[in-house]
Write a protein that binds this DNA or RNA. Structure first.
Lengths: 190, 190
DNA sequence: TGTACATCAGTGAACGCGCGTTCACTGATGTAC
DNA sequence: TGTACATCAGTGAACGCGCGTTCACTGATGTAC
């Protein structure tokens, strides 16, 4: 063989990783396949040896993004609990760098317009993240904690999406501050 | 003149209205100008007598959407206060009909990728809505109420965006229920 | 009153462009005999 | 050991398509003289 045994696998992973970042930054429609491949030093023709079509890549990029989001979340939770996670999530750094941030605020509007199958895959993986977060909230009522995590994630992802949409204005910073502050109060009340 | 005096004005308004609905349903990239104009019984060439370019239409469609969202919000607030507003916002009907719903969850991801100028226009109009909502929350501390409204809007828009992204799953309904429930508790605590 | 002209919202053919996708090909390597 | 062939990740020209945008034109009407 011309390449090492796991060469194709590694290329595949690199495409998914790069796509995941670029989709978050520019949206699904804002990333072209030729452009994406050339950024990895590859030609666009090879793309179809790795993926069925662009939709397939979107699915895999979203899954990868949810994996990443989960790992980053666990890191913050381990270091300082939900307070640290919320702090990090509502930071200016997160707002200004969608490519390294959570997939939810970056792509949720667009994900809602995809096929039933794609949305089901998204829901399945997202639901796992919710369960794992729920275990880390105080109390033993997992079902209740699931609702709490869903509420927190709605507020967090909404705040980042709105703060990005309002650009470099005072309002943008205000939205993040407000959401952080009231989520802290919510946590304190648990 | 061939047409009535306000004919052009009315046509302009009709285009903005239709675009506003279709952008919410299909996203900015999902709506073509020729397609949009033909839906109004017009040909695509005439578009540029009304708008500088597609970006101009997006700006106007967003502004129109924020006007509409405000009116619908006030209606709910007048009928049953914030509880009624939250109830309506987190309904299945809202999730399933982006075209008649709030612009925030439908377009916020995409708005974040537009020009600085467009985002500033969005922020200005959105900020007005926030002020007007803040006046209707209990208490006299308007600055505090602004933060509360921003928190509520983050959670509401986030919950709809996530519920749409998770499609027709149990999770989708759960997210709406959870957000509604915890926002009710938040209101009760004010 | 009648005619020539100006106005202007809307028409539709045409443009260049970038996109997703296809496919015959390349060329380095492993393998069969 | 040497040669012919199979493998297969990646190449790049070519495709059809839909898009945003331009522009010379239409045709019904108001207006000037």
């Amino acid at each position: 063989m011309r390449y090492s045994e796991d060469h194709k696998e590694k290329t595949h992973a690199k495409i998914v990783e790069q796509a995941s970042k670029e989709f978050r930054e520019h949206g699904f429609e804002g990333v072209g396949i030729a452009q994406l491949m050339s950024k990895l030093g590859l030609s666009h023709g090879g793309f179809y040896a790795h993926f069925e079509d662009k939709e397939d890549l979107k699915d895999q990029a979203i899954q990868h993004g949810l994996d990443e989001s989960y790992e980053m979340a666990i890191e913050a939770l381990n270091s300082g609990g939900f307070r640290a996670y919320i702090e990090k999530y509502t930071s200016d750094l997160h707002r200004d760098h969608p490519e390294y941030g959570c997939v939810l605020p970056a792509l949720c509007s667009e994900e809602g317009r995809r096929t039933v199958e794609s949305k089901a895959k998204f829901a399945e993986r997202f639901s796992e993240n919710i369960d794992l977060f729920a275990e880390r909230l105080p109390g033993n009522d997992l079902a209740l904690n699931r609702t709490r995590v869903q509420f927190i994630m709605s507020a967090l992802s909404g705040s980042i999406a709105l703060s990005r949409a309002t650009g470099d204005t005072e309002l943008s910073a205000e939205i993040l501050r407000s959401t952080r502050q009231h989520l802290f109060a919510f946590l304190d009340g648990l």
